[in-house]
Design a protein around this nucleic acid. Sequence first.
DNA 1: TCCAAATACTTTGACGTCCAAGTATTTGTT
DNA 2: AACAAATACTTGGACGTCAAAGTATTTGGA
Lengths: 171, 171
Amino acid sequence: MTLDFDPIDEAAANWRGAGWVAVDAMTAATSITRAHQILSGRIDTALAPLGLNFSRFEVLALLSFTKEGELPLGKVGDRLQVHPASVTNTVNRLEADGLVVRKTHPTDRRTTLAVLTAAGRGRVEQAAVALAEIEFGVAGLTGDGRRAVDAAILELRVTAGDFVSPPSQRR
Amino acid sequence: MTLDFDPIDEAAANWRGAGWVAVDAMTAATSITRAHQILSGRIDTALAPLGLNFSRFEVLALLSFTKEGELPLGKVGDRLQVHPASVTNTVNRLEADGLVVRKTHPTDRRTTLAVLTAAGRGRVEQAAVALAEIEFGVAGLTGDGRRAVDAAILELRVTAGDFVSPPSQRR
DNA sequence: TCCAAATACTTTGACGTCCAAGTATTTGTT
DNA sequence: AACAAATACTTGGACGTCAAAGTATTTGGA
């Protein structure tokens, strides 16, 4: 399973050999893809004992930061930047597990609120601890590396139109 | 859809406010997750007119770099670091589209070779051009940013056991 | 030689994501 | 007041991924 060479390096050499262009872009894209694969695996493994995955955890965490522990499903999707159908699916699962409850918005009946239950609040605390223990899967990245990744990807997110105004300074 | 604040910055502030630790790890993990989402979307959009997605493209590209245009499915999985079942699935699709053909290994009948067809070779060239045009989705990342991402993620991949010996120097 | 273990791939099933279409409700105009 | 358009969420379908179990074949001893 473990190779004795860097597969991305190898790929870059092959691409150059074939005369293909944009090799540096290719390696960056491949690196990010592989990084996501690694993180996703580590994080899901850490959360599995709690019956969560990263998506479900993100929803719980987001709710836990609100005053009332509740948020319209649409807002959840906006903040987490996932498709409405995914929010529906994730909340279905959380609701089935008793970590969240759906409630109709008091003044806009189109809107559904996801409300954190007591069980959900407890679970998200446990999960936060579990994730901190594995450093969110980025063990292996130094502080410099993490900052470099954040800064570089910030450029990418801005060009993708994630948000408009310049972000506040990160220390 | 576009927010007027950086959702990752916002999340970091919330996490600190809740007294949760490993906030820098969380932001790095979230950045990588979001970056993957952006790249994946851009790349799949660029490849869709060619009937490909990134996985299928990667298989074709890998085959095109070999002398004979063929490789055992297991090797494909090792190089691209994907699950055997995913290789089966991807090759099924490529075969259905006539871009690849399965052939039994001449000396080991357990092994199946994926063989690039002439159509497959043509298609992968088109795809390489299409991807170069959109810079593999990393438009927005400067050269420095790309190098920073590569270098940082290299650390991560090493700790994940992707490969053992130190990689050759990237210039 | 024989046979258990390893290897290579496929199949099945559980999830997850997105898109497109459908339903319900509210908004904005005329 | 009436109604088209916008908004909010859900549903159904197409794909993709991984894990675990199943089938076929080869390997490596005893």
